[in-house]
Amino acid sequence: MTGVDVLLLALGAVAVGSGVFVVSTRHLVRAGLYLVVCLGAVAGMYLVLTAELVAWVQVLIYVGAVVVLLLFAVMLTRAPIGASDDLDRPGWPAALIGGGVGLGLAALLIDAFRWTTVELPEAGTAERIGEQVFASWVLPFEVLSILLLSALVGAIVLSRPDIGRTPGDSAARDRTPGDRPAGDEPAERAGSGGEGGAR
């Protein structure tokens, strides 16, 4: 067992352990934070596997943006701060299928690779990855940017407050603006503004 293996083992243990906590904790916010740990450990594994650019992109985007978004959503949906009891559905189909999938895949991969060793390739630096992306993979790259654009537009459209309102309801809202407590509108606007700002 080389040092690389030990590192991989340790980081893998951390990732799996925090993953277990993500899916089983009763505290919503702690789940988000455990996710951070998990994603960080995975980023570490990327580093060990010489995927430098991917590792840092992972930290930037996954840990920095995605998890933040998730935590924002947790806050905006009025998640309880402490433990909550009603977070889980019946466990047996989940355990069955999740266990089946995970252990099955693991068995498959163990069967494929056993205890073989490979040489680590040259590092995936920004320069080298950039060469590949903008040379061989430029078309998917461009399509991805269009996809990002449409996702952005879609998210904004979806978070408009007037979606899903029936005409009668909107008429009621327009007719009785004074009845609505003043605290709602700022919260709504803050919500949509917050979501728009997270992009």
Partner: peptide
């Protein structure tokens, strides 16, 4: 480097993800 270690980690993470999707109500 023994690739089986990250592979098994990934497999277990995937299984945990499936478990989480099926188990959680939120």
């Amino acid at each position: 480097m023994r690739p089986v270690i990250p592979y098994v980690t990934a497999a277990l993470l995937f299984g945990l993800g499936v478990y989480g999707v099926l188990r959680r109500r939120n």
